[in-house]
Each structure stands twice: as structure tokens, then as C-alpha cells.
């Protein structure tokens, strides 16, 4: 994504230190062996980090998971706004009561 353009950013796709506990199922990336807890995480990783090497099937899967994530993010954003409202009015009420 943003790698390689900048010598200061020595980001690589080499698998950093991971550790899969015994009994857990890991979904390994076929290109760099990085393990993931969930399959959709691996699909996203392949699309983001190995977009130049992935197969067409992987690309289709990536697009699907990505748009599903988009929907999930919409809901999450609503929750964030809800939490913001709670913080804001919580503080407002607290100030009204205290001062």
C-alpha cells in the first residue's frame, strides 16, 4: 500500500512475530505465512498486502469481504456516535449538577 515509496517507512509484509496457541485454528496467508484468527482477516490481508500476486478468486473474495466490512463499519460508526453523545451529555449533566 504505502510501502516502498519511502525509505523511512521500512514496513514490510514479512510475518512479524506471531504465536498461535495450541488448539486454536489459524488461517495462514498463502503468500507470507502470517496466521489469522478469522478467515475474513486473511482474505482482507491478501487483498491489501498481496494484491499484485493474488488470484482472481482471492480478489473476488476480498471485494466481497471488504464491502461486508463496510456495512459492519457503518453500524460501528453509529455506536461510536452514540458513545460520543453519551460522553458529551454525561459531562454536560455532570457540570450542571456540580456547578
Amino acid at each position: 500500500m504505502t510501502a516502498n515509496t519511502d525509505p523511512q517507512h521500512d514496513r514490510t509484509d514479512a510475518p512479524p512475530e506471531t504465536d498461535v496457541p495450541a488448539g486454536a485454528t489459524a488461517h495462514g496467508c498463502p503468500y507470507c505465512d502470517r496466521p489469522f484468527r478469522r478467515e475474513d482477516q486473511r482474505t482482507l490481508h491478501v487483498g491489501l498486502s498481496h494484491y499484485d500476486r493474488m488470484t482472481e478468486a482471492e480478489e473476488a473474495a476480498f471485494r466481497e469481504v471488504y464491502s461486508a466490512e463496510e456495512e459492519e463499519l457503518g453500524l460501528y460508526r453509529l455506536k461510536l456516535v452514540g458513545a460520543l453523545v453519551v460522553v458529551y451529555f454525561g459531562m454536560l449533566l455532570l457540570y450542571a449538577v456540580v456547578t
Partner: peptide, 9 residues
């Protein structure tokens, strides 16, 4: 974060 990264990483 649901990840297999080690806490150290």
C-alpha cells in the same frame, strides 16, 4: 484485536 501477534510484537 483478535490477532495472533505476540504481546511483545
Amino acid at each position: 484485536g483478535e490477532t495472533f501477534f505476540t504481546p511483545a510484537a
